[in-house]
Amino acid sequence: MAHDTSILVIEDDPPIRRFIKASLEQEHYRVFEADNAKRGLSEAATRKPALLILDLGLPDMDGIELIAELRHWSAMPILILSARTDEQDKIAALDSGADDYLIKPFGVGELLARVRALIRRHPAAPDGAPQVQFGEVCVDFINRSISRAGNPVHLTPIEYRLLSVLVTHPGKVMTQRQLLREVWGPQHGDDGHYLRIYVRRLRQKLEIDPAQPLHFLTETGVGYRFKL
């Protein structure tokens, strides 16, 4: 299956770059490489890749700055690579517009799964889609109605807003701050406990086993991710 979806990898460590490139090329992606932020930005501008894979620990520029700069002129999905120790950098990167992250070390399987999800989602974001279906649940955005296994489910307005924000960003890690801002409004940035209580309610109403959810996943310390 030859497709020419291109991916840009900005990573300063050659062996890591090498294995990412090898794994992606095996899946027939076109891979461009950059070993610093400056080159990365110019590659991103000229190649217009479908996805950017970005290491947060670059020598010449803060990865968060790079994302902010890129977001001025591009909506391309960004997958960040981070060490477990820079929790706060990761959140800052997601807040400033990155879509997902991988914690080092990671396997090829994880990498490809994330890449596929991000590329699949983006060209056809279900923004305009009238209906989304996951598990037994069907969300009808036109009639604002939700059904589960054919039976209507009642959601409060906030539950519905939270559900639609999550569902319209499948696969994307939504930080706590982003969700609070979109659902409750900008002045509620610190009311994380509301978010957790409402996610619990969504799980109870929509998940088969709320204790082991399949769609409304927790990204500990970061936020939530909706998985189709």
């Binding site: 460590d13 294995f19 090898a22």
Partner: peptide, 8 residues
Amino acid sequence: TSLVGLAD
């Protein structure tokens, strides 16, 4: 990271 990735 490169060890895990390359082996994988």
